[in-house]
Structure formats: C-alpha cells, structure tokens
Design a protein around this nucleic acid. Structure first.
Lengths: 270, 270
DNA sequence: CGTAGCCTTGACCGCCCTCAAATTATGTGG
DNA sequence: CCACATAATTTGAGGGCGGTCAAGGCTACG
C-alpha cells in the first residue's frame, strides 16, 4: 500500500470516507528516494506540487549568516510539504533529508483534480496545515521560554507522540534517527549542551537513547518536566475532548461549527 | 471610510479589483472599541468570525505556568484574526489588546457570502495567512539564533516596515505604543534587559524611542545589525520583484482553508 | 500632591556557549 | 575480519550573555 502513513495521519484529524481513502491508496504517484545530504525542496524555488514523506525524517530549515542552521520543524512519515509555498511562488525555507528518505510526489495539476474528487481529503490537508501552524508557535514558546532540559524533553515528547500516531512507536519508545546536532538545531542549543542534557536525563533514568532507539522510561516525568500537552497535535478524539479551557463567547451568535456539517465545510477549516 | 488600513494591507499582497475594494469599504459591519487590559479573543473559545484591527496594537499570546507571557505575534492596524481557529472550534492562543483598540467584526455567515461575491478578497486573506505563517517562523529564527541586540533590532525593523505599509509611519519613524515589557515578552527577554539594550542603541545613535515615538535614526545600521530582510512580509511589488523570479498570478491561488468555490481558485495559496 | 506604573541603573549569579581533547560509533578497502 | 579514516558522542575548563533581585527616578493622572 502506498501513502499509508499519510492516510493514517490525515484520519487522525478528520474521518475520511472509505471511498476517499481507497482512492488515495490506489493513486499511482511518483515514488522517489533521496540519499543523505540532499534537499527535497530548496529555499527560493517553487515546489510545484505536494511532497509526502513515506519513510525517513526530513526538516524545514534555513542557514544563517554565522553558519548556524535553524530547524523550524520536522517532517515525519505521513507528513507533507510543498503546499505552503508563498504566493509569489518561492519557498522561504529549505526542506532537507535528515536520513535517507522515501517520498511520493503529487504534481499540482493532479492535486487540482483531487480537490474536486476528494473534498474530505482536501479539508484534511487544510486541517493538517493548521496543526502545523500551531506546532510552529509551540516551538516558538519552547525555545523562547523553557530551559534546555524542558526544551529537549518537550521535543522528545512531540516526536514520540507524532510517531505513535502513524504507528511508528511502541508503548514507550520509538526509533529516532536524529543526530544530537539535529536536535540542537531544532532547539536552538549547541550539540555539546544537548549532549550534556541527554546524559543528565539518562543518569536520572528518565530516558534512554542508544543506537537511534529512544525509550521514554518514565514518560509522565518527562512530560511533566516539559509541560507537554499533546492537544496541539490534534491526534485522535480523546485529545480533542480533553482540551477544554475557559471558553468565553464574545458573541451571542449561534453555533456555526461547520466541521461536521459538509464535505467541504464553508469556513470551518480555518 | 471603514476598513481602510485593512484594504490597504491586502492590496499590498494582491491587487484587488476596484469593485471588490468598494464593496469592502461599503460593508457596514459591527465596529467596537476595547479598553486596555482585555482580550479580543480568549484562548480556548471559538472566535465565530473575523476580527479586523482598525487602530491600536494587539498581540497573540499565551501565559505560562511560571507566570511569564509569551507574545507570538503582533496585530497592527489592518491585520486580522479569527480565521485561524483550529478545526475543533477553539483557539489555542489568546488575542489581547496592548493599547486601546478599535476593531471591526465580520461574523462567519457573512464571510461565507463574501467568499462567493469577493473571490479576490478571499484569495488575499489566504495570502495574508501565509505571510503570517512565515512571520512566525521568522520569529522562531529571531529568538532562537540572534543575540538580544539583533533580536530587538529585528523586531523594530519589522514593526516599522509593517506600519509603513499601512501608512502609519514616516520615512524613518513611527508611533510605537508598546511598553518595554511587551517587547520583552515578544523577544523572550526580560524587561530589564530590553531596557539595557535600548539604552545602548540610543547611546550609539541608532534609534530614539521617547514618548511612544520610535525614530530609526540610522536604519541601514539597524537593519544590518538585525540581518533584517523585509521580503517575508511580502509588501509591495518592489520587494516581490527583488526577492524572487517566478511570480505567479494571484488567481492561481486558493484555499485549502475549506472555503471552496469562488471563481478564482484552482489550488493553492499555498 | 500623592500614588501607581513604567523606566532606569547597579550588583551578582547561573545557564549555556566556546574551545579543545578524548572516546566511541560508522564505514571502507584490503 | 581487520586496519584505518571519518563522523558522532562524550567530557572538561573557562567565560559571557542575559537573568534575578533590588532600589531609585520619571511620568501620568486623580
């Protein structure tokens, strides 16, 4: 089956009709591989379509004048990119492989057809974008306000949770093929300090990370350390129900929650 | 004229047909004021429509367990919010007034109508969202990689540039009604340190900031200090032409936002 | 004229960075 | 399977940027 983690990921956000998931799985789209130090999409170019990660890790990133690299988000199996190119036709960030990669590519013209044939699928793509936006803000929070230990803990929780959602994690661990330098660039820390923090967490029995195998030995503790709340990832109904907070209505208007109403809800995706 | 900075802002992104700008200006939508320590939209609630800032400054923010506040973005006159509420119908961030505020409100049902009648307008809304997304990533870069001076310089450049785009700045300065604590929460610094950095920049003759009047006395220097490139704000054709080749037509843009339809859009404001 | 909020400045400290070297994984050719 | 080369991780010593705590000054406003 192609596009399997992709479909699984979208279904976490919005239930898709069987007809659409079948149609997606039966798409025969270009399938490619990428070896290691390569970009999927280079900064400044027009991606021309949708890239869907099948296996491996990628990252949205940019280089800085001082030689540092900042990672702005990870792309895991089932994630996609290329839809977000700014309207002038050029991405502002590169997307590069952090491990050998398998990915599918859907060119723009085919996407247009799908948008008509598979409205739920398209709504789900929009949902995924919103989740990604909130994830970016969560990262801004993370690097802005948390000390290194919490910051790292938060990232590990996020990666673990996201991988679990596409079936790539066990109960308390997952494969994590990232170098400490990758984590450092995502957390705005130095590799040296990431190492020190990792060692400390290992010594305290919170986690173990050996040969790309991450085990969250004490997930509640790590989660607490990070202040990690998974609700921004919008995975599954349980999280949705749980995320109630202080809900004030500025308007007396009727509820117009479109998201259950129609195939392509009028404004809800936004 | 109502909605004037709003229309001006959108036109920086996509030329709007005269018919649509007229229709927008003639909309008689609810107009409100807000006094100071109040939220426009509270975290966890459903905004139920579009909020458009007419005058004053607002911010998207959240509180942290340790009592700190992180500002994730500023909303200046002409900016809007409420379209971005996640699909489960609750925002994850509050939007609050930093100064007394005037704003317009367009309820969702009216928006749906407009999406049909004013397709270019709707495309422009999508563009503005993309710019906002890139701005958030730029902020992540800013707090993640730059030292305090550059970080502050970058923010001042951004605010100045954005205000200029809606006609609220002079050649080298603008009104900046923010407290140093607001800047601090946006930059992930302490108010004390923001003050020190401001004082240093004043002593070097780079800027002056007195009684809410910001003057960038040496803009090239400040810009250089910050590594500020205005292209992510997508303001005006000059920047667009300078930033890339390959300029797609505005109508080829559309909506993954869920508002389907509209004459224009095939695929992707994306 | 007094109070409250914001800005300013000083002294001190800690988190994280820098520089550097040692140790361990990973991979390649013989 | 071993010898070697390269990349990644680990550990140490020292320093600086920005935080914390605290006090004093300025401005606005009743």
């Amino acid at each position: 089956m192609m596009l399997d983690p992709f479909v699984k990921r979208l279904q976490q956000l919005t239930p898709l009709p069987a007809a659409e998931t079948e149609a997606l799985r039966e798409l025969h789209v270009a399938r490619r591989r990428l070896q290691l130090p390569q970009d999927l999409v280079a900064k400044g170019c027009d991606p021309q379509g949708l890239y869907i990660i099948e296996s491996g890790f990628a990252a949205r990133y940019t280089w800085l004048p001082n030689g540092r690299r900042q990672i702005l988000g990870f792309l895991l199996p089932g994630d996609f990119a290329g839809l977000r190119c700014s309207f002038y036709g050029a991405t502002r960030w590169s997307i590069g492989a952090l491990t050998p990669l398998e990915f599918a590519f859907i060119p723009r013209h085919l996407l247009s057809q799908l948008s008509v044939r598979l409205p739920f699928f398209f709504a789900a793509l929009g949902h995924a974008r919103l989740v990604e936006d909130d994830t970016t803000r969560e990262w801004l929070l993370n690097v802005g306000t948390r000390p290194a230990v919490s910051r790292l803990a938060h990232l590990l929780c996020e990666l673990f949770t996201r991988l679990k959602a596409v079936g790539l994690a066990t109960a308390n661990g997952c494969n994590l093929p990232l170098r400490q330098a990758d984590l450092a660039d995502a957390l705005a820390l130095t590799p040296v300090h990431v190492n020190r923090v990792l060692m400390a967490m290992r010594r305290q029995g919170l986690i173990s990370l050996y040969r790309q195998q991450l085990v969250l030995a004490d997930f509640p503790a790590v989660r607490g350390l990070a202040g990690f709340e998974s609700d921004y990832l919008c995975l599954g109904m349980r999280d949705r129900a749980a995320s109630t907070a202080n809900c004030r209505r500025p308007e007396s208007t009727a509820t117009l929650d479109g998201h259950q109403a129609a195939p392509a809800p009028a404004l809800a995706a936004e």
